[in-house]
Amino acid sequence: MADPNPTGIDAYKPSEIYALVDQAGAQKARIRMPQLLALSLLAGVFIALGAAAYTMVMTGTDMSFGPARFLGGIVFSLGLILVIVAGAELFTGNALLVIAVVEKLVSPGQLLRNWSIVYIGNFAGAILIAGLVWASGLLNAGLGETAIGIAESKAALGMTEAFARAILCNILVCLAVWLSLAARSAAGKILTIVWPIASFVLLGLEHSIANMYFFPQAMLAGAAVDWTDFGQNLFIVTLGNVAGGAGGVAFAYRLAYGNSESHLDIVNDQKII
């Protein structure tokens, strides 16, 4: 019997990943409302847990110091690892659903339904964890000052800066999702997720769902930021995340593999998060 992996690399090829993303978009469009809300809430919880762990790692360190930020990024990767391996619906990763729309497997209305429900669920999950961290007393144990510093630095960004950082951020997040689909094992998925996510944190980029946790956490800790600051940041960062994921990664791979032979017959058991 011929070796299915003659190169020794046990991973799907890029064109096969494209087919996985394509099929997964159709699957996501059919998710029932209760299930979609539950998975969206979980994703918000998972990203917030990664953000809370990041905040603790950065406590007592120089937040502008590269090695410390890279370590924080590795810890923050917990969020997307949980989303991908445990299973959840994350708004920023779902920017890749645009591929299924272009391939006419999903309608624009179905795309907007998914994005809106997932966004709301992610927000609820992030707020829930922010409230639990505050109730736990962790914000009074050194974590609060770090939380304040993180949010105030984000609020100080100009619109152009925040938008550009959000584009770059979701390019890396969607590439992490894309790479995770190449892996056939949980360990492989984890290894492919860590490096893009750690890199976006190291670079100080902007992730809308993470900010749904960072700003409420800081406000509960007594930061000089308010809901207006939060709303302005979230609006521009969300637009940038969509541009980076849908207009960047999804569009680029549509140009590269959109006309290639489909591989759906070998990937029917796969899902994208």
Rank of each mutant, 00 (worst) to 15 (best):
L157G: 04
I266M: 04
T7V: 02
S15W: 06
F235T: 08
Y213F: 15
E206W: 13
Q232V: 14
N5V: 07
M56I: 14
I190M: 07
Y253D: 06
R30D: 12
L71R: 12
L42N: 02
E152K: 00
A2K: 13
G204C: 09
W178N: 08
H263G: 03
D3Q: 01
L239F: 13
A243K: 10
G93Q: 10
G222T: 10
I74C: 11
N114T: 07
G79Y: 09
A43K: 11
G144K: 03
I236R: 00
A186S: 08
R184A: 04
Y253K: 12
A52G: 07
A147K: 00
D265E: 04
L90R: 11
A29R: 00
P216Q: 14
G50A: 05
M63V: 15
E261C: 02
T55F: 03
L71K: 11
A218P: 02
Y12M: 07
R32W: 14
F214S: 02
L203V: 12
S136E: 01
C174Y: 05
G142N: 15
V133K: 05
F215M: 09
Y257R: 02
P6V: 00
Y18F: 15
G125Q: 01
S116H: 09
A147T: 03
N140P: 01
A210W: 01
A51R: 02
W134P: 01
I17N: 03
V106M: 12
I209H: 10
W134G: 02
V249Y: 08
I47K: 00
K189N: 01
E161K: 11
A100D: 06
N211R: 07
R254T: 11
G50N: 10
A86R: 04
A135Y: 10
V83Q: 02
L181Q: 08
A135C: 03
